[in-house]
Design a protein around this nucleic acid. Structure first.
Lengths: 226, 226
DNA sequence: AAATATTCTCGTATTTTGTACGCAAATTAA
DNA sequence: TTAATTTGCGTACAAAATACGAGAATATTT
C-alpha cells in the first residue's frame, strides 16, 4: 500500500538583493555524483518528524548558513526521470533575504555556497534551472500583488531603494514619480523622521512597511497592487 | 540517506458545473479507517514509474470514473500530523469538468462517489476541507486571468452561460452588458451561426473558445482579464 | 392576433485609474 | 556662489472601468 520507493526532498531558491548588485541567487556546489562539482540549489531529504518548512530551513542553515526572511512554497516537481538515481520528488520553495552578501560567509566556506548574480548563472544540476525559472516568474508576479518586496530590503528604506528593486525585478524602467504616488496611496508605509544622508542630491525620507496597517486594510478588501 | 518512512500521495479537488446547479465538488466515501464512512476528496498513492499527473488521473478514473478537462497542481500539504497513521505528504491538484452530473454515474456506483453542491458540503476527512478552501480560492483568482472557465462549459456556450458561470464563481453580480463587452474585446471567442432557442426572450448566439487565437495573442503579450 | 414580458445586443455618458512630464525645493560637488 | 543632482508635489491627458438607456428578437399571455 505504501510507496517506499519514492523519496521526498525539499529545495529552495533563495533570492538575495543588494542595491548595487541587484538580484542574486544562492547556490551550492555538489560534492558527490551525480552532477559532482556542478552548482545546484540547496535542499535535501525531509525527515520524518519535521514539517516541510522546517526541512527547508534546516537544509538552508546546514548547507549555507542563511536564514530567510520570507519562505513560500513554489511547486512540486515529480517527473520520474528528474533524478538519474531513483524516483525523487521534490517540493520546491523560494525564499527572500535582505543584505544578500552579509549573512552567508559566516556559517560556511565560500567554496561550497555562493551568491550568483542573475545574469551570471552557471549551468545547474538536475532540473534546477527549470525550478529557478519558475521561482523567478512567481517572484515577478507576486511582488505586484503582495507586499513581499520589503523582505529583500532593510527594515527602513528609501523610495529610491524600493523603486530600484521593482525595476530590477521587472526588468524595466518605472516612472519614479508615478511609482511613488501609487505606493504611498496604498497607505501601508510609515514615513520616518530620518532622512537618507550621504548620497548626492536632496535626501529622501526613510520609510518602514507597516504590517499591521496592511493586514487591517487587507481585511477590509484593499488590494495591494503595483 | 533516503526517506523510507514518508509516503507520497496525490489528491484532487474536481469542480463540476451545471448551469442550473452551479458549482459542485466530487467526493468519495471512505471505506476503511481512519475516517471510515466520511467523505473525502479522491486520491491515492503515487506509483514509482508514473508522473504525478498520471497518478491523479489514474486515481480519479479508478475511484470515480471521471476524466477531467483541465488539471493543475495546487499545493503540497505535508504537516506531520495530517494523517493519524503515518507521515503522508500529499500533492494536491484541482481539476475542472463540464456537465458535471453526466459522466460520473456510469463508471462507479453512486454510493461511493458523488457530486456535492458547494453549499451542501459534508464534513470532510483529514485536512481535506483546507485543501478544498485552497482550491476554491485558486479557482476564483485564476478564472480572472487565465481562460480556464471554458473548461467547465460545453464546447459551445452562450454569453448568458459564461456570464452566469463567472457570477457563480465570484459569488456576486456582474453587469451583463459590460461583461459581454469585455469578453468580446479579448477576441478569443468565435461566434457561431447557431442561436440558442428554447428559452424565453430573444435567443443569443452560441460562442466557442478559440484556443489557437488565444495562444497567438498571448504570445504577443495580450493578457486575459475579466 | 395583439399586447406584454423577457432577453440579447448595441451604444453612450460618467467616473476612475493610469501615464507622461513640468518644476520648485533640498542637498552635494565644483 | 554656481552647477548638478535628486526628492517631492502637482497637473494635464489618455485609457479603462462602470452605470445604464433603449431598440431588436423572441416567447408568453390575453
Amino acid at each position: 500500500m505504501a510507496t517506499p520507493n519514492i523519496s521526498l526532498t525539499v529545495d529552495a531558491i533563495v533570492f538575495g538583493y543588494e542595491p548595487k548588485e541587484g538580484l542574486s541567487v544562492l547556490l551550492v556546489k555538489r560534492k558527490y555524483p551525480p552532477f559532482k562539482g556542478r552548482w545546484a540549489i540547496p535542499g535535501g531529504f525531509v525527515k520524518e518528524k519535521e514539517s516541510l518548512e522546517q526541512a527547508v530551513e534546516r537544509e538552508l542553515e546546514e548547507e549555507t548558513g542563511v536564514k530567510v526572511n520570507y519562505l513560500e512554497q513554489l511547486y512540486s516537481f515529480g517527473n520520474p526521470k528528474r533524478d538519474p538515481r531513483s524516483r525523487i520528488v521534490t517540493i520546491a520553495y523560494y525564499g527572500l533575504v535582505r543584505s544578500a552578501n552579509f549573512e552567508l560567509f559566516a556559517a560556511t566556506d565560500a567554496e561550497d555556497a555562493q551568491w550568483f548574480h542573475l545574469s551570471e548563472l552557471p549551468k545547474l544540476a538536475f532540473d534546477h534551472q527549470k525550478i529557478l525559472d519558475y521561482a523567478l516568474e512567481r517572484l515577478r508576479s507576486k511582488v505586484g500583488y503582495q507586499p513581499i518586496g520589503f523582505k529583500l530590503l532593510d527594515k527602513k528604506f528609501t523610495m529610491e531603494e524600493i523603486h530600484h528593486l521593482y525595476e530590477v525585478i521587472y526588468g524595466r524602467k518605472l516612472d519614479r514619480r508615478n511609482f511613488r504616488k501609487k505606493f504611498l496611496k496604498l497607505e501601508i508605509l510609515e514615513e520616518l523622521e530620518e532622512k537618507s544622508g550621504g548620497g548626492r542630491g536632496r535626501p529622501g525620507s526613510y520609510y518602514r512597511f507597516d504590517e499591521k496597517k496592511y493586514l487591517a486594510l487587507e481585511k477590509k478588501g484593499m488590494t495591494f497592487e503595483v
